[in-house]
Design a protein around this nucleic acid. Structure first.
Length: 227
DNA sequence: TGCCAGGCCCTCTTTAGGGCCTT
């Protein structure tokens, strides 16, 4: 069986709640969630508050509903990140505004002493949404959820709810990409590599990017089958 | 609360400015 016919690609959609806008400015993670997506559906979930000792400003407490008191009883951040690394091992990652989550991911993993996983390549649903949905009012997660009437995943700005909403958005995007580029992709699945290709291409180069990707994938598949 | 940071994209321009998105 070739790698292209397995159809078992699992991606991990993650979301951090934090005390600030970046680890470089003193921000630390307060909660993390990851949902595993495979075969067009969510197949597993991980969520945990995490104790770092950071103080959460009132605005963030109000925004997320995560209080300093809640974090006092949370498990140590390093312990949570090690569990998360195991939970997501071998999976490409997806996040809404991935540069934000990637910064905290790398910082918290490093503080936990976890080795980087080469499979953890990020795809950003904001970049994809800007490519695919020019008619959307904006590309905020909540706006896109309402725009596409995605399933209600619970309180916004909690990690599991936002990760679940992002996962539903990802599934919607895969469906739309498959329909929009059916002639170029043919029987190839819309996998993480396709989305990575799309998010790096300019709006006007979308079709060329998909065609180039499909051509490369078909060439690699032919090589494998002939080996 | 509002826009503190950082990364990315778009536009206009070719180096820089402005906007979006995340907590």
């Amino acid at each position: 069986m070739s790698v292209f016919s397995k159809g078992v690609e699992t991606v991990a959609v993650i979301d951090f709640e934090t005390s600030g806008l970046g680890p470089g400015s003193g921000g630390r993670a307060t909660e993390i969630a990851a949902v595993l997506v495979r075969g067009g559906q969510i197949v597993d979930r991980f969520q945990s508050l995490m104790h770092t000792g950071v103080w959460v400003p009132p605005f963030i407490e109000q925004l997320t509903g995560i209080s300093n008191a809640m974090l006092d009883d949370a498990p140590p951040a390093a312990e949570v990140m090690r569990e998360l690394a195991q939970f997501t091992r071998g999976c490409p990652l997806v996040a809404h505004n991935a540069s934000f989550d990637r910064g905290f991911w790398q910082a918290e993993m490093a503080w936990a002493g976890c080795e980087p996983d080469p499979a953890h390549e990020f795809v950003c649903t904001v970049l994809l949404a800007r490519r695919l949905y020019a008619d959307a009012p904006n590309c905020k997660l909540g706006t896109l959820a309402r725009h596409f009437q995605l399933p209600d995943s619970g309180r916004a700005h909690r990690a599991l709810a936002d990760a679940s909403t992002t996962a539903h958005l990802l599934l919607r995007m895969k469906q739309d990409v498959a329909e929009r580029f059916a002639a170029d992709l043919g029987p190839l699945a819309v996998d993480h590599a396709v989305l990575s290709c799309l998010q790096r291409s300019s709006k006007t180069a979308l079709k060329r990017a998909v065609q180039a990707h499909a051509k490369a994938r078909l060439g690699a598949q032919a090589l494998l089958l002939s080996a």
